[in-house]
Amino acid sequence: MTAAKLPEECQTKDDVRAEIDRIDQALLALFAERHQYVTRMAQIKTDPHEAYDKARIESIIEKQRERALGLDLDEDQAELIWRTLIDWNINYEKGIIVARRRSQ
């Protein structure tokens, strides 16, 4: 594996694409790790309504917006990404909880 290049070290579009691909691979690995915890949470929760916690969601969104600003990222885009991720996780958790309750 080649060493990562800083953005200013990239001289060609292929250099930039290679770094984006490297980062995408790392992001996917982190999403997979995160998904394991979401799965565990779904195993712990007992009611499908527990998957949606508005206060918790808004707290997470606010935290991510602040973090995005601190990283000089667009906070609206960060919010969109996290709301999408949270929505997927809610639906996933509900599915696991409902399926488990049906099989009991």
Rank of each mutant, 00 (worst) to 15 (best):
M1L: 11
A3H: 07
E8Y: 10
E9K: 05
C10L: 06
Q11N: 11
T12L: 06
D14I: 01
D14P: 03
D15I: 01
V16C: 10
R17N: 08
R17A: 13
R17L: 12
R17M: 12
A18H: 05
D21F: 06
R22K: 03
R22F: 08
D24T: 12
L27P: 00
L28R: 01
L28I: 09
A29Q: 02
L30P: 00
L30S: 12
A32I: 05
R34M: 11
R34V: 04
H35D: 11
Q36G: 03
Y37F: 10
R40Q: 09
M41R: 03
A42G: 08
Q43T: 11
K45G: 06
K45A: 14
T46V: 06
D47L: 02
D47F: 01
P48I: 09
P48T: 06
E50M: 05
A51H: 04
Y52K: 05
D53E: 11
A55L: 14
R56Q: 13
R56F: 11
E58K: 00
E58Y: 01
S59K: 10
S59Q: 15
I61D: 06
Q64P: 00
Q64K: 12
Q64E: 15
R67Y: 11
A68K: 02
A68Y: 03
L69N: 15
D72L: 15
L73W: 07
L73K: 09
L73V: 02
D74L: 13
D74C: 14
A78T: 10
A78K: 03
I81C: 10
I81F: 14
I81V: 09
W82L: 13
T84D: 09
T84F: 11
I86S: 00
D87F: 00
W88R: 14
W88G: 14
W88H: 07
N89T: 02
N89M: 08
I90C: 05
E93R: 01
E93C: 10
K94I: 06
K94N: 03
K94G: 00
G95Q: 08
V98E: 09
V98Q: 10
V98I: 15
A99E: 12
A99T: 13
R102N: 14
R102K: 15
R102Y: 02
S103R: 14
Q104Y: 08
Q104L: 06
Q104H: 09
